[in-house]
Nucleic acid binder design. Structure first.
Lengths: 233, 233
DNA sequence: TCCGGCAAGATTTTCGAAATATTGGAAAAT
DNA sequence: ATTTTCCAATATTTCGAAAATCTTGCCGGA
């Protein structure tokens, strides 16, 4: 379990474990709230304590794990409140970054956007039918498309922040998929978003992106409302 | 050197070293670009490798140190470009957070704001005359005032982010002080900012805060321009 | 003189064991 | 019955040595 999650090879065990741990948390193979015992992690990743502790400290700073002195580490919890906080930040930060990307992005950026959009389209329709491998591949391409779009920005801090916030959001999107919420017309949303971006239509692009982000929050709200209704009945 | 930097005591060596390292970097006792050799750090902080590496990984995720696989860690560099990126983010993020604080802050928050403002005023006029200890104390109270103002916000992520960005800015402010730039009427700026905040005048408060942040960037720009002129002559 | 390769030294990274702290439960006391 | 205390089991944290990797300076050859 948990072999190389992304093709880039790490030059240290610490970096490799960081990558694998983040991937396992983002994809809920390590579930929210789980206690991260070193004996378990050692066996799971086949490394010693030093690289594990370093990776966990890094993830603690990123917000994907909680650290408590002398009491170890746990996977960061998920909650409706947390999702609202997360979505609020993404709405503001990603709009800002996208605006910057539209004013800074050059020809190479445009081409990369087109490439990543096409790459994503190629796995699109098969999401439901194909196995978990195909779903994982779609997630990778989906993230790549969004990050490529934002990569035109000239601010390293904004780009990093968007990346971290996207990872945190992935757990909530996965939760929706696991509970059978049928995706809306995501394909179309990506296409129109890309069109607005390439046309440098800032107002339209940010509006579309905000809508795209907000809908995850709304769907989770619907789902929890439905579950509450079911529980009451 | 580098004993307890802040009163809160850490329950692990890792946390203590993280606190001290961050403090030493923010206050430029470890200078931008410096290589952080483990042999040096071991002697400086009197701890083994494990807590050091954990603290460095944490700071790498925060952005105060750069990590390169198999080639150790360095203090994050400073540059005019970096300052512009930093200021741009602070302008947006802190405005957002302050807006939220003004709409969420309760009585306890208001009282804390008044307390921290008064606490800051008490060290104000002595900044120039008194020694480095007094200057360090003013920095602590200054940060405490700004963070208290923003602490009314309901978003943990925004509050954390503001804290990290403030720390990163401190190095640039210190750089200005070291190069003898006389501070403008900072006292007055803090007072008017607090007044606007307590009056829940969002537009005025965010405008004042943005001005406050922007001026550091402008002063650095002036200073580098002056230095360039001197170098040319 | 300049360039590539190689060996010696320095530095980072990793592991296994020792030290320290927490937790759960049984026994004693209220 | 409830609370308190103690002890053993479990888990985390830290250190020091060993392994892996990088850097530096030297040497021989073009």
């Amino acid at each position: 379990m948990a072999e190389t999650a992304s093709p880039e090879q790490a030059r240290t065990l610490s970096a490799a474990v960081l990558r694998d741990l983040r991937d396992d948390i983002v994809n809920c193979r390590l579930r929210p709230g789980d206690k991260l015992r070193f004996s378990d992690l050692k066996a799971r990743y086949g490394v010693g304590l030093s690289p594990l502790r370093e990776a966990l400290q890094h993830l603690a700073a990123e917000g994907l794990v909680d650290a408590q002195d002398q009491r170890g580490f746990t996977v960061a919890a998920m909650s409706v409140d947390d999702l609202q906080d997360l979505v609020r930040m993404r709405l503001e930060i990603e709009s800002l970054t996208l605006t910057d990307a539209l004013s800074c992005g050059d020809d190479a950026w445009e081409s990369e956007v087109v490439r990543s959009a096409h790459h994503l389209r190629l796995t699109g329709p098969a999401t439901e039918q194909a196995g978990p491998d195909a779903a994982a591949e779609w997630c990778r391409r989906h993230k790549n498309f969004h990050m490529t779009l934002l990569s035109g920005s000239s601010s390293p801090r904004l780009r990093n922040l968007c990346d971290a916030l996207f990872d945190q959001s992935e757990r909530y999107r996965l939760w929706l998929i696991l509970h059978g919420t049928v995706a809306r017309d995501v394909e179309g949303e990506h296409d129109t978003l890309m069109d607005a971006a390439l046309a440098r239509d800032t107002a339209r692009a940010t509006a579309l992106l905000k809508q795209h982000i907000q809908q995850t929050a709304d769907e989770v709200a619907d789902l929890t409302a439905t579950q509450a209704a079911l529980a009451a009945a």
